[in-house]
Amino acid sequence: MKLKKLLEKWNNITNSLNILNSQLIMKRRINKAVKILAIIFLIFFLWWLIYSLNFWPGWLFPSPQTVIKTLFKGFLNGTYIWGILISMRRIFIGFGISLLFGTALGFLVAKIKLLRQTIDPLILGLQTLPSICWLPLALLWFGLNEKAIIFVVVMGTILSITISVKGAVTSIQPSLINAGKILGARGVNLYRYIILPAILPSYITGVKQGWSFAWRSLMSGEMLFITAGLGQLLMFGRELNDMAQVMAVMMVIVIIGVIFDQFIFGNIESRLNYKWGLLK
């Protein structure tokens, strides 16, 4: 019921944004899609060409047909679907936690001078640490379980979100804040009606980046960690010397990455930029 309402609201938002230039956007999209399909086709063709030249044995460099066959088989017998579901569950939990706490921390660092002077450099430093470096610590703290891998995802994501929120809040035009204050928005209202909407475009960009950090952290975590999930399917392929399996899973990972990056976050981002007039 609630979901239905939410969906309705979402549709309303997207519709109202779409009225403007919807035909033009449609045309551009089709144009873009055709080009992308052509490139994918070309890549597969080159792949097949190299395969047919027989430089490497088939079990090291499988043909595109074998990989696609493995892909279908994986989906039909459910292994890939389970792998995707398990990985998705982890990333949603880890990314959700990061979003919540990363955003809150970002606001705190932006608004409190003491934190800006003390924690800020630390945050930048820790962000340079590849997330997988947290795995040994996570294993000792949480043991070989879900918590450890979610911890790795959170550590890989949270600070990037904090940094982007902090950047967005500190770079709001002071004139917008002044205008808001003059028009009566103070205290909580200032946050709700001015600061939050004002940071939205850079926030979405930060969230998108955070997502890709989370996705990378999860995959590297899953590969080193003996448990189900896409990363583990990849390692499984390696252990069985099944190159087709390795490539098929890599394809799945890429496709999921593209779906979230381009279609979900990318879409929100470009709609927002369009509304603000930031789109070139």
Binding site: Q173, A179, L183, A185, N189, Y193, P197, A198, W276
Partner: peptide, 20 residues
Amino acid sequence: EPTLFPWLKVKDNMAFGLKI
């Protein structure tokens, strides 16, 4: 500078103070 809120339509920019 006009300092309009870029995320609000003209009418919502104008309604801002009243809404608050």
